[in-house]
Write a protein that binds this DNA or RNA. Sequence first.
DNA 1: CCATAACGTTGATGTAGAACAAACTTGATC
DNA 2: GATCAAGTTTGTTCTACATCAACGTTATGG
Lengths: 234, 234
Amino acid sequence: MSRLDRSLISELPLFQGIEPADLDGIVGQARSLRIARDHTVFDQEGEAHSFFLLLDGRVRVVKTTPEGQQVTVHYISPGELMGIAHALGRTTYPATAIAVVDCVVLAWPGNLWPELAARFPNFGAGTFRTVGARLQETQQRVIEMATEQVEQRVAHALLRLVKQTGRKTDEGILIDFPISRQDIAEMTGTTLHTVSRLLTAWEEKGLVRSGRQKVTVVEPHKLFALAEGRGSKG
Amino acid sequence: MSRLDRSLISELPLFQGIEPADLDGIVGQARSLRIARDHTVFDQEGEAHSFFLLLDGRVRVVKTTPEGQQVTVHYISPGELMGIAHALGRTTYPATAIAVVDCVVLAWPGNLWPELAARFPNFGAGTFRTVGARLQETQQRVIEMATEQVEQRVAHALLRLVKQTGRKTDEGILIDFPISRQDIAEMTGTTLHTVSRLLTAWEEKGLVRSGRQKVTVVEPHKLFALAEGRGSKG
DNA sequence: CCATAACGTTGATGTAGAACAAACTTGATC
DNA sequence: GATCAAGTTTGTTCTACATCAACGTTATGG
């Protein structure tokens, strides 16, 4: 096992205002894990033994209904916490986390969370902000699902991904991990067929370029106009 | 202004494990407010000067889209915190809170929150649990919106209200505050017309009894079966 | 007690998007 | 380089639910 040191986390907003020696202590209590693509970091209903910090890669958080339908709740980017069931007073994970590319994570024992939060108020407050932001985002999605039609929802979802993980290329802004029509459908509550049709239509209008597990947004502003319900017909 | 004392809050889960003297101190820093029916406790985008504890009544939390559409995010029951924007690192309220009946609330200055959370870890942890529960619930609604059809969503919404605020009567379980077809539509992302049709159909089947701003669930189990997608046709 | 606004019901029509079905493409694997 | 699976496209059909429209009912206040 490789030596872990504070440089892994010292730049993250979550750990600002904590003494270097303490950072070493915190990191010292973590295990570092590599999660191969398509493998899970933790599983829905599983015992919440740990909480995690994503250092590198990208993780999809999915809830599965009793009927077996999947809904993608959130994408995790590097620097974010995940699996903080303990902090929320739960003993099992409420969702499954799947690595969409090879990932590196730090894992702490779940029961360490209260201790860390008590000793480092900034850490506790940071977790609070994370959860708060996630609540905001989730409420926003409820609003979208309740008031927008599919085309706008898919457009919003793509723009969100672009903001979180967009990488500039010569064609436009590439969503920087493999993402299928099915994945987008699970984020927006529609079917892969409808997503496919939308992407084809947008490609014809020059808004996006897309291929197998790959989407590039060429004209973010036009896509945004569409997301806001001001499509070309308005 | 009436004298406030610890008995107002000492029984609430949120304040367990805090010394009586400290409870007096906490309550002493609060103002008590009466909010008349249909008036707001706080307003979306407004400066988050305070956070609140609902002592009595019922509050509807609503988000309004730029296009003016309203979505009900949550109902608050007595004993719950609301308007905790500060704890989530925000400076404005993300939604509007409307009293659906005459209410009594306690209000603390927003900037007091970090201090209380630091001095009373149980209080901080309790807030965390509140926010966590709200996140869970909101994610559940995203899943419902993504995977269920309107009839099931409305059934789930009614059952949730029954659980939170149901009062046993001789006809069944009454949702114990005035609630219109429009209100239910805003909770479930549909129209008042569709809600009206559903309630009429359910009434014919003997599942509910409803009238002007009033819904009584007569057969919770059958309604639950329906909510789970096992309607009479299955 | 009458006016009027708020709330609720019910019918007719239209359509977004799911469901069904089938073929095509692109990578992987032996 | 043939085979196979996973991902994608595209056409057709069908339906749940919104939308449009009108009318009925119950409260409220002058």
